[in-house]
Design a binder for these strands. Structure first.
Length: 450
RNA sequence: UCCGCGGUAGCUCAAUGGUAGAGCAUUCGACUGUUAAUCGACAGGUUGCUGGUUCGAGUCCAGCCCGCGGAGCCA
């Protein structure tokens, strides 16, 4: 008899079944044991009654440690007392691999995340990581389906790159035979080459940032999806970003109901995704923030007063900070697109706004609930002369970027795209406290293990 | 790099400068319907490191190490 997965058990009610998996938890009494049994697809309660099994089987069931791997023979039966609606009445049980003194407890799903991350290789067996990582899996699949269905070509960018794409960020240096390579911090420049070759491409892979960021929103290694489209101008970039966000979030809401329930996620704000995203210019956002700063300062809420102090901290005309993004999210209670930032705070490859040469044709999508920037995109500078000027101004080494400039020498067209951080997206959907919970093995400044 | 917080049992945390404690987990025992089961018992410690003050330091002081949160930068 072949084995059955826990998630399929409802179709086997009244039948004898074989289950393969691990002991998740155990309760019980002298003559009746309740084994919480997991196989990766779900958790089911297996009842071992002393009267129904040989003495040796009962003794084994009583002694085995948490996370012992098992083969269970039993009968699936409907039971309203079980949260799954089904439980197993065990007839036989075989130990495959023993487990003694398992270092993680059921009740440790909540506390010190850093200690648990030391045990990440085991922690991923627990309920909370399970739910979050299943959402991640769905999000990644939704992203792939979205672009595939729209006719985008998957265009992989290299991880080893000759130099910085964006100048300011710190790159990881790695020895590369006789010279030095850098781990990619964005596939976008390569995506532009792809867009001019295929029209619509999407780069999807890991990226690396050596910044010493220590916040709940940062990883040194994270996954980014970066569509890039020829003949797409800023409004089109915003349309694409909005459509993609709506597809991904809706699909997670639709297909990850169980996971979001386990995570006790209130999805009210997520459901706002069906409404159009407000599109607000940087200049209008500055005015709004001034208003919110004054409003929050006068509020009786101490949290808001504190937030008020950090709004527009760099003064007017500066890049938006974390507090600004939090305030914007609180005000709109949905995703907001802020466009046309000052050029001096943005990357060299962004196109100058023809209506105001102090502004760039760029957009950030800011997610609510304190998540902040989740997408950054722009129309790209397609003029050879303007791009060369920007490269010089940002001191980007010409020898490593010359190929990119070629894209403006041989049939340049208006084009644009954006990058979305997969982990931040998953963080928003799941409500995870730290972005490092949204990837199986997070890499941060102080964490390279396990 | 800067600012703030922290490091005590496997985990979460207590402990006026005066014998280092609890809950959970582990181990053992009781219990035929438990949902983080419950109840009883045993066991569990170089209080991050180094030095200092003191009759006496988990506690006070200095330095260091490690981590966390935030800022900056970004997705």
């Amino acid at each position: 008899m072949g084995s059955v997965q826990v998630c399929d058990l409802k179709q086997h009610v009244g039948q004898p079944v074989v289950l393969k998996g691990w002991l998740y938890n155990r309760r019980g009494s002298g003559k009746l044991l309740f084994l919480q049994f997991r196989d990766g697809s779900g958790i089911v309660q297996c009842v071992v009654s002393k009267a129904d099994v040989p003495e040796a089987v009962f003794e084994t069931a009583k002694r085995i440690g948490i996370e012992t791997s098992l083969v269970i023979h039993g009968k699936a039966s409907e039971d309203k007392r079980s949260s799954l609606g089904v439980e197993i009445h065990v007839t036989d049980l075989t130990v495959i691999g023993e487990s003694k003194d398992y270092p993680i407890q059921i009740t440790e799903d909540v506390p010190n995340i850093d200690k648990l991350l030391d045990q990440r290789h085991l922690w991923v067996r627990s309920r909370i990581p399970h739910a979050i990582l299943r959402v991640r899996s769905e999000v990644v699949q939704a992203i792939r389906d979205f672009y595939y269905n729209k006719g985008f070509v998957l265009f992989d960018a290299p991880m080893f790159t000759p130099a910085s794409c964006e100048g300011t960020s710190t790159l990881f240096e790695v020895p590369y035979f006789e010279s030095t390579a850098y781990l990619s911090q964005s596939g976008q420049l390569y995506g532009e080459a792809g867009a001019l070759a295929f029209g619509k491409v999407v780069v999807f892979g890991p990226t690396f940032r050596a910044e010493k960021s220590k916040t709940r929103r940062h990883l040194t290694e994270f996954w980014m999806v970066e569509p890039e489209v020829a003949f797409l101008e800023l409004d089109g970039v915003m349309d694409l970003a909005e459509e993609q966000m709506r597809y991904v979030i809706s699909r997670a809401l639709e297909r990850c109901k169980e996971e979001l329930k386990v995570l006790e996620r209130n999805t009210a704000t997520l459901e706002q995704i069906s409404k159009p995203f407000p599109r607000v210019s940087y200049d209008d956002i500055q005015q709004l923030l001034q208003k919110l700063k004054a409003e929050y300062a006068a509020s009786p809420d101490a949290e808001l007063q504190k937030l008020s102090k950090d709004i527009l901290k760099g003064g007017l005309g500066d890049d938006l900070g974390a507090a600004d993004e939090t305030a914007i999210g609180m005000h709109f209670q949905q995703c907001v697109m802020v466009h046309r930032y000052p050029r001096h705070v943005k990357a060299f490859y962004m196109k100058k706004d023809p209506a105001n040469d102090k502004r760039a044709l760029c957009v950030d999508v800011i997610a609510p609930e304190g998540v902040g920037e989740i997408i950054g995109g722009s129309q790209r500078e397609d003029s050879l002369d303007e791009l060369l000027a920007q490269i010089e101004h940002h001191k980007v080494p010409m020898e490593s970027i010359n190929w990119f400039v070629d894209l403006r020498r041989y049939g340049s067209v208006p084009h644009g795209g954006f990058g979305m951080g997969v982990e931040r997206c998953v963080q928003w959907i799941t409500g995870a406290q730290h972005v490092r919970e949204t990837i199986p093995f997070p890499r941060t400044i102080y964490r390279l293990n396990p």
